[in-house]
């Protein structure tokens, strides 16, 4: 197919890509915390961080220094090993999920650079043909971070937090999977590149117009899977202190945070590529710019919703998932199937 035209993907290129993803996404995730604080502040008519650097831009650096130098506390009766590896599971699965997401276009390193000159760096680190499912699977595996963290820390808030993790992630995985099944049926492929190709016809060919229900369902389930506000039950301060993160401090807590923001970016990328036209040019705007704008809009939507809407109760969460969203998703799939057959 058209992949044969491209230069060969070497292992060096993949490793470089992985390093780029790690570096860029962790920086962007850090910047996401700044953005979140700023946007929430503006919506509450506050200024937000202002004192570290111009407009508080260096707040990330200050927070990073603080997190790195804080004492790493392990509670007395906690299961030390599991307690210590749990945050890295969250961060690792979030970044592994990004391996199947196209981030930045392909490029070849110029020849004049020593050692690495001429290496082709692909846009996707691991171009497997079940990309969407892989991302979902890795996000499903990401549930172990909060789960093990809560169970290992010998704290009742922790165990309530991890119980909520289990029910929330397990339930909403179903909705995520079913909601993107209808677009997958239309495209006939699980690769994000094929999704992009499907929507080349400009604004009118976006998947949103064909599958509005699936888009809304995916957004709702994506909010739940990334633990964003209307479904922010895992670490709802009013009810369970910090949930699974109650006993964590320093960089281990920071890893949960980075994982959460990386997951937010992943969900934004999937929504932008699958439903909102991907990285095709829109009129006169270049594709790389428009995809960044779309991802930024979905990210902003998460912050906007956090500023506007209240939490829901855990029983309402389950009610919403199993009695509302899942039937709608199934009906959507059935209707899509009928329309495709006719």
């Amino acid at each position: 197919m058209e992949i044969a035209v491209l230069p060969e993907v070497t292992s060096a290129g993949v490793i470089i890509k992985a390093i780029i993803i790690l570096a860029i996404i962790s920086a962007v995730a850090g910047f996401g915390t700044y953005l979140e604080r700023k946007v929430l502040a503006f919506m509450q008519r506050r200024l937000g961080p202002m004192h570290v650097g111009p407009f508080g831009l260096l707040q990330i650096a200050a927070d990073g220094i603080k997190l790195f130098t804080k004492e790493d506390i392990v509670p007395q009766n906690a299961n030390k090993l599991i307690f210590q590896i749990a945050p890295s599971i969250t961060a690792a699965t979030a970044f592994i999920a990004l391996a199947a997401v196209p981030v930045f276009p392909d490029f070849t390193i110029p020849e004049w650079i020593p050692l690495l000159g001429g290496v082709f760096v692909p846009s996707i680190a691991a171009d497997i043909n079940v990309g969407v499912l892989f991302i979902l699977g890795m996000m499903a595996a990401g549930l172990y971070g909060p789960l093990l963290a809560g169970m290992a820390q010998a704290n009742k808030w922790g165990i309530i937090g991890s119980a909520r993790t289990a029910i929330q992630f397990l339930s909403y995985e179903v909705v995520t999977g079913l909601s993107i099944l209808a677009p997958i049926m239309l495209v006939g492929s699980l690769s994000l590149v094929d999704f992009n190709e499907y929507q080349t016809g400009g604004f009118a060919s976006w998947m949103v117009w064909q599958q509005p229900v699936a888009f809304i369902l995916f957004l709702i389930a994506g909010f739940a899977e990334t633990n964003r506000t209307p479904f922010d039950l895992l670490e709802n301060e009013a009810e369970v202190i910090s949930g699974y993160a109650t006993e964590y401090s320093g960089m281990r807590w920071g890893m949960f945070f980075i994982g959460e923001y990386a997951n937010m970016i992943t969900v934004s990328v999937i929504a932008a590529v699958m439903f909102m036209g991907g990285y095709n040019d829109l009129g006169f705007i270049a594709g790389w710019l428009i995809v960044i704008l779309k991802i930024a809009f979905i990210f902003f939507l998460m912050l906007w919703v956090r500023a506007s809407w209240p939490h829901i109760r855990p029983d309402q969460l389950m009610w919403l998932c199993w009695k509302v969203l899942m039937p709608i998703a199934v009906i959507n799939i059935v209707i899509t199937g009928f329309v495709m057959m006719v």
């Binding site: 499912l133 699977g137 890795m138 499903a140 549930l143 172990y144 991890s162 995985e173």
Partner: peptide
């Protein structure tokens, strides 16, 4: 991927639920 989603994501999480 199915192994990941079904065994890791669902079945093991149910075990974990029982462990609580």
């Amino acid at each position: 991927v199915v192994q990941l989603i079904v065994y890791v994501g669902a079945i093991m999480a149910l075990y974990a639920f029982a462990m609580m």
